[in-house]
Design a protein around this nucleic acid. Sequence first.
DNA 1: ATGAAAGCGCTAACAA
DNA 2: TTGTTAGCGCTTTCAT
Lengths: 354, 354
Amino acid sequence: MSTDAHPSPTVPTTIGRVTITDVARAAGVSVATVSKVINGRYGVAPATSERVLEVVEQLGYETSLVASSLRRGRTDVIGILLAGFDPFATELLKGISTAAIGKGYELLAYSGAISDDNAVGWERRSLSRLGGTLFDGAIILTPTIAVPPSSVPVVAVDPHTGTGNASTIESDNVGGARAATRHLIELGHTRIAHVRGRTDLESAGLRERGYRDSLAEAGIPYDPELVRDGGYRAAWTLDAARELLTLPDRPTAVFAANDLSAFGVLEVANELGLRVPQDLSIVGFDDIPEAASATPRLTTVAQPLQEMGARAVSMLLALLEGRPAEAHVRLPSRLVVRKSTAPAPTVISPATPS
Amino acid sequence: MSTDAHPSPTVPTTIGRVTITDVARAAGVSVATVSKVINGRYGVAPATSERVLEVVEQLGYETSLVASSLRRGRTDVIGILLAGFDPFATELLKGISTAAIGKGYELLAYSGAISDDNAVGWERRSLSRLGGTLFDGAIILTPTIAVPPSSVPVVAVDPHTGTGNASTIESDNVGGARAATRHLIELGHTRIAHVRGRTDLESAGLRERGYRDSLAEAGIPYDPELVRDGGYRAAWTLDAARELLTLPDRPTAVFAANDLSAFGVLEVANELGLRVPQDLSIVGFDDIPEAASATPRLTTVAQPLQEMGARAVSMLLALLEGRPAEAHVRLPSRLVVRKSTAPAPTVISPATPS
DNA sequence: ATGAAAGCGCTAACAA
DNA sequence: TTGTTAGCGCTTTCAT
């Protein structure tokens, strides 16, 4: 009932951590001996070893990753640095997780961008804070900055523009965007908008390029009015979509730089009484699981996300083990036509906010 | 070109870690002073402080989480312990991630079951290895053992049977399973199989209970022959499903304990030439995003996974801050009828392996 | 206002 | 075979 400063735990299940010293004391040996036993070093009498192991078992002792890491400078864990656990990141994680099985490494996904003040540059911070001590190498997902020289090997997925000499992995962004736009053109659309991605990422620029390429190829003039920033996020896309869809000569189709943006456009279309795909066609990019279950099911460009994650692991492993590693990998993307695209309407129904 | 033991990095981007000592030397002060500046402690001359900050900036120094954690015993990091990044875990992660924004904690998801030898008990190991040093509190997903007394507060999601006095969070397993089974019964099915989940988890037993309850309610005798273990994994389910579907008097419907198992059953049904839902109805549990996009779209019991993750965060935060916390939370589940269930066939077509 | 020194838990040289 | 010691990077008294 006291409110003093003693930091005693409030739950009874909380109990002091068992340290190597506790084990040493209980077994009547030195901490060095315990350490040797635990790490299987030679030079310990069988009887001693057995006794120590018994105590370890009984006390439920595990060596602290933090302490041993500090001392050893090596942990056998791979770090995955990400801004948050969004669908894109978690798909990658699934592939990474599967690929890492049986490779002798544990996985540690760290989200260090939980507040707004470090929205940009979180990976640099995480890398310095954890790299070399907490993990032996890292996979960075959609970095907000060019990956800085670091104390550990790094592989960047969906890299930042001008990512120095770090290894990178991505999918065919230009090709995917071209296919998406061409699909729309083939359906008869000519007023095709583009909701751009995070302009600091290479992929956003590449996807815009693919969009413009296809337009040019079809002889459709590029209209800057039809391109807005969505930052790869549903929330940011909302304003952009509202502007786009309430334009006097509104687009009949939107190519969104990723699925999350596409969902944002979809939401706004619903708000404005525009039916998808009859009044408005929408194409996304990524093919996160949510895309296939949206209403209507989203036409999108599939990136082999899980495979990209798996490749990132094998690249990093090579780096870690000093084997020759590919520097830049690009995997194919492909258009998946579902239900959010249809032939261009002959009569353009105006947006009518409900 | 030498092959000596010097652990020199193989990539040029790898550079030695910048430590507080480097900063101190460069700024011409002691490490203690640097530490004070960094942590905003009083008693440093403005001029000194400024100079140190400059050096910090220039060198790109960040304090090592590992070292400061070791010294401080506190990190402002929440750990999430999981066996792997499967769809169930990643959905929870999405909710956890969203709920943690702006709360002053960073997130660290640790997968310590990457090899087979520690398939059971990984969370105990991870908890001792990291708890209290690397993170201040933990959320454990589908533990393989009852959460042991630990040095930090813990919340278990989808807890193990007999989870001592740790805080837990789950959804209405019995109710969901009853609804699923009742749905099948209402469609006219009487030979309803059940692919059981991981029997060490409370949820598996609870779902089986719901299944049996509904059967009993409808006066359908319980047939042990129709219940097999799937361990919540698609792979393990395959054998179980094959046995079930090649039974002389095969079931016309299967209630799988989770979506992954349901996918396993679906796969086997395809193998055996059984059409879903015409020849065989399947119901899952969880409603992971993949369920809605399966072919056919899976009827399943939805757990509010993201909300469960969010609640886990708020429970843990309460524990961490010494506020009163709910001990056991149960959220509602609900049946989502999609396309993998249909009225019982009047003629039972046999399995015909392709 | 600044720095020296101790110590968090652990491992690795080295000495006994 | 065992223990003593130093030190990984950092924070925190406690002197100066």
